[in-house]
């Protein structure tokens, strides 16, 4: 089944400069009871976004109209903890298409790539600089070119290459689906099983 493609993106950013943001913060466990993939964006960062009484917490960045865009600029070690893919669904459902950090947890990274959410790793220094720029000017834009694997801060011209597994890159650019790919290898899988059982 074809998936949404990711080719290029130019957008303003939403900054979340905290380290070790775990998937329980991204989507608390009490919102994991749904059986579909949609609608999790409403509860993205729920306990930071809303007060104990359910009102919007005006201190939290998602409630600050100055900061909008399709790129979430996070802190180091983003997405640690639980393997819940709901965290990625929530970020994607909210409208983000890329997450930038200097370090991602492994399972989060896989889950993001499997759902068309591009995780981009940049250096600690550049991440700090980007956060400072966004705080100073919320209109700061970044440009992402997946084909060229470049990440550029539009106003300063800072441009770096980012890493991505070539297989995953191909999948994102062309909207290819992992399961279609695996299903095409069924005979290989069956012969692996036959060899093993001998």
């Amino acid at each position: 089944m074809p998936k949404v493609k990711f080719i290029t993106l130019e957008s303003t950013c939403v900054p979340l400069p905290f380290e070790n943001v775990d998937t329980d913060q991204i989507i608390p466990a009490r919102f994991l009871s749904a059986t579909s993939r949609q609608g999790f964006g409403d509860n993205l960062f729920r306990d930071w976004r809303y007060t104990k009484t359910g009102e919007k917490n005006s201190d939290f960045v998602l409630n600050n109209p100055d900061f909008t865009g399709k790129v979430l600029v996070a802190g180091k070690n983003f997405g640690s903890g639980s393997s819940r893919e709901h965290a990625v669904w929530a970020i994607f459902d909210y409208g983000f298409r890329a997450v930038v950090s200097s370090f991602f947890a492994d399972i989060f990274m896989n889950n993001a790539l499997n759902n068309g959410l591009l995780p981009i790793v940049i250096s600690d220094d550049l991440l700090k600089k980007l956060h400072a720029l966004i705080q100073k000017n919320p209109d700061t834009k970044v440009k992402i070119d997946l084909e060229k694997q470049t990440f550029t801060i539009a106003s300063t011209g800072d441009s770096v290459n980012f890493d991505i597994n070539p297989y995953k890159k191909e999948c994102l650019l062309k909207g290819l689906d992992d399961i279609d790919f695996l299903l095409s290898m069924k005979s290989l899988i069956t012969s692996y099983e036959n060899n093993k059982s001998q």
Partner: peptide, 22 residues
């Protein structure tokens, strides 16, 4: 090791997952 739901679907469908070696 732990996996996400897309990977759960891979295993149900093919008994395999796509995984870079750590």
């Amino acid at each position: 090791f732990g996996i996400g739901t897309s990977e759960v679907e891979m295993v149900l469908a093919t008994q395999c997952i796509l995984q870079p070696k750590p």
